[in-house]
């Protein structure tokens, strides 16, 4: 019997050769054994390189902003978490739904150099909120029971000064490469506040630690209520900064205070109740 991965690849090829889609968005092998990088396939020859296996962590949904502007339909292979991110992009009218064909690919958790990715340990669920067809099996539908907020709670229990030092030392590693911003599916403004030369955070090396705080508070807050908890910011960071902690703290608070939200649903921050607690 074919595995899920084999079925996904076979189906992607089938749709490509039948002319249903113009191009296929998937992954290809990178330099390292554990590395898979996003790749766009436009010819039959290229398509031979398409892979889908336990290392396909990168979230492809954001690529669809640009790809859905091209002529013809694009097939995108999306894992359940990627589909959640796409759901947000659809709600924000960033992606033209007609121009994409979503091939949902079942996933048993993705791995990186250091084993199972953090986002997979705390997977939100294996349903596809948006798809044209999905290929999975029993095994792919099992959701791990990792506690999403365990790390946040651990930090909450520290004293204020400990928390400050923890974040200051983590954030001081930032080289302002903007990878966390660029990969984030919730970060899709054409012009970003950080592209403004006057924003004070454009330099590669911080002139003052304030810059790190400013960049990271604003980055996290700009996606408050919209973050899809895909964990890509932390995965993409070349410096290994646990950025998702800031986002998860916001998600946790919004959940406790205003009842939470699902990626692509209505953000509680564009809503209110007269009975809300005071700040």
């Amino acid at each position: 019997m074919q595995t899920v991965a084999e079925r996904v690849i076979a189906r992607a090829k089938e749709l490509f050769f039948s002319g249903e889609v113009r191009r296929v968005l998937g992954w290809e092998r990178g330099e390292f054994q554990h590395e898979r990088i996003p790749a766009l396939y436009e010819t039959a020859e290229q398509l031979e390189k398409l892979v889908y296996d336990e290392y396909c962590g990168p979230n492809l949904s954001k690529e669809l902003i640009a790809l859905s502007k091209l002529e013809g339909r694009t097939l995108a292979i999306l894992k359940p978490c990627d589909a959640r991110s796409l759901n947000l992009l659809l709600r924000e009218y960033r992606v033209d739904r007609e121009k994409v064909y979503i091939l949902g690919a079942g996933c048993t958790g993705m791995r990186g150099r250091d084993g199972l990715l953090l986002k997979c340990e705390t997977c939100r669920g294996k349903d596809f909120p948006v798809f044209d067809e999905a290929i999975d099996d029993e095994e792919c539908r099992k959701v791990p029971d990792g506690d999403r907020f365990a790390d946040v709670c651990r930090i909450e229990q520290m004293s204020g000064d400990e928390r400050f030092l923890f974040f200051r030392s983590e954030l001081s590693k930032c080289i302002r490469c903007n990878a966390c911003r660029n990969i984030c599916p919730a970060c899709s403004c054409n012009q970003c506040v950080f592209d403004n030369p006057d924003s004070g955070v454009s330099s590669k090396a911080s002139a003052d630690p304030f810059e790190d705080s400013q960049f990271h508070i604003v980055r996290a807050f700009h996606v408050a209520g919209r973050c899809t908890d895909c964990g890509e910011c932390s995965r993409a960071c070349p410096q290994g900064i646990p950025l998702h902690l800031l986002n998860r703290k916001i998600i946790k608070d919004i959940g406790e205070l205003y009842g939470g939200y699902e990626a692509g649903g209505r953000s509680p921050l564009i809503d209110y109740r007269a009975s809300d607690g005071e700040a």
Partner: peptide, 20 residues
Amino acid sequence: YYARRRMTVLFRLLEFMGID
């Protein structure tokens, strides 16, 4: 009302990062 929600979330984030 929007400011109240926004600031509540922001203030909690600042506190999380160790700002008084």
